[in-house]
Amino acid sequence: MNENDDSNSRKSELDCAVCLQKCNHPTQLPCGHVFCFLCVKGIAFQSKKCAMCRADIPPTYLDNPILLGTKDEQDNINTTLEVNQWFYEGRNGWWKYDERSNSELESAFNAGEPDCTLLLAGTLYNIDFQSMTQVRRSDQTRRRRVRRDTPMFPSKGIAGIKTDDSTARQVKSDDEESPDVVHVPIEEEIIEISDDEGNVHIEPDITLQDDVSHVTEAIRSVSLEEPNVSRSLNREDT
């Protein structure tokens, strides 16, 4: 059983410690730890600390995040060019969903499911395929239009990482082994962090409190079970 620890530490070099998957748009915090871009967004808004070492994340970090471009990522992008692309509406245009969310949306859509739930930057969103809208589950007033289109449809970038100025692309097409550091300015917060009036309101603590208060209550009153929430694990594992 002790060998497990070894395999854990080896895995953690490849996987993001927050989502436990391969780093998607690897992003490096000032302390040096690397996570997916969307995972960094999640922790930057919620705990505001690095998930590995608890070093504070500067409030301005997301204005100028350090993205590590790798060849793997390049391959990832090429793959997604062959499939349909999902977009969500931002202030002055559309953003592509990140590659991983895109494939989840695509498989739910192709399976004929009415909607798809995504965990984006630490928050659950429901994407309804009938109305083609994305709604934050904890706040139904946070609503955005979504669309399914060809990858060529004009967009501002991927998941809040602005790429239409091609700066990032140039770096990513380099064949160097070591990751390049790219400073990509983020024009607009993705996923409901700023609303369309431009008011930035994050309030993670309040939202969080609201979200879990019923759970806390449930714990105090002995039983936590919510029988209506059922989903086979195997089914999810595709």
């Binding site: 497990n4 927050v18 436990l20 965990l119 209506n228 929430v229 989903r231 694990l233 999810e236």
Partner: peptide, 18 residues
């Protein structure tokens, strides 16, 4: 109905396997 994030699926599988 709530989909289960992949992280939870991964953790659950590992808890069962190891």
């Amino acid at each position: 109905m709530a989909a289960l994030p992949r992280r939870i699926i991964k953790e659950t599988q590992r808890l069962m396997q190891e």
